[in-house]
Amino acid sequence: MEYFLQQLINGVTLGSIYGLIAIGYTMVYGIIGMINFAHGDVFMVGSFMALIVFLALLALGVTFMPLALLIVLILAMALTSLYGWTVERIAYRPLRGSFRLAPLISAIGMSIFLQNMVQVAQGARVKPLPPVITGGYQFGAADGFVVNVSNVQVIIVVTTIALMVAFSLIVSKTPLGRAQRACEQDRKMAALLGVDVDRTISLTFVMGAALASVAGLMYLLYYGVIDFYIGFVAGVKAFTAAVLGGIGSLPGAMLGGLLIGLIETFWSAYFTVEYKDVAAFSILAIVLIFLPSGLLGRPEVEKV
């Protein structure tokens, strides 16, 4: 039972990270109907940004952790947003109105470019971050098994919930969110009503990148090491999460992320660690075959 509880906590933590990345996929898909395959690498860039800012702060002697974390969070979000914006501006906007496959190809190109850029700039070795946040809580030692909840896990889950609430509110209550939903349904009509569609799409990429950078920071805190290649697997898993939840649906992405995190963790805990990716991607295949619109997605209605 304690073992199960421990794995549940680990799974929720991992799921939070996937969920944050998955939101970026799902929002971009919602608004321009394209999978941004460079999004996983924006997440990777985000984690590098977080690492660089963290090391800079430690070098500057900022050791009060809540303050340092806050600064890292804000700076990493801002810098990574700039990446998200640039990627859209360079790789996708010129191809808007072109054939459907074109932005997909340039997305893959952008993904390769970002990986190689970071590899060249930061080196191919893994980069460690000294454990800056330590400690945690322990529960129940009745039969000798202790359930650990580290402070990092608490921070990850709490921040994720806070951000998801904040972004849901932005989408449902602000003019930007309304414009996003309007563009999702009918871009041409939205433009005719005075919505600047290009800017709305840019801001969607910026929001996705900001959330991905937070996920990058979480990943860095949780695992302590990053390299230029983490974006690929995490990105594809988050994409799986977005599809599982129903691509285009915001709550779906959160739910999907959580489920993928749990499935992966429990698979590793009760079966084999080696096949955890197989488990996650089998879910992708099964969902695509039997439930193409996902758990919370709207079924595609053929217009007549």
């Binding site: 003019p175 309304r178 414009a179 939903r181 349904q185 939205a190 005075g194």
Partner: peptide, 27 residues
Amino acid sequence: RLFGGMTALENLLVAQHAPLMKASGLT
């Protein structure tokens, strides 16, 4: 070509997007 998934009120608010966006300082 209404935004079918949005409420009647929201449809009318989208049409006032440009001044609102300005007032919200890009959100």
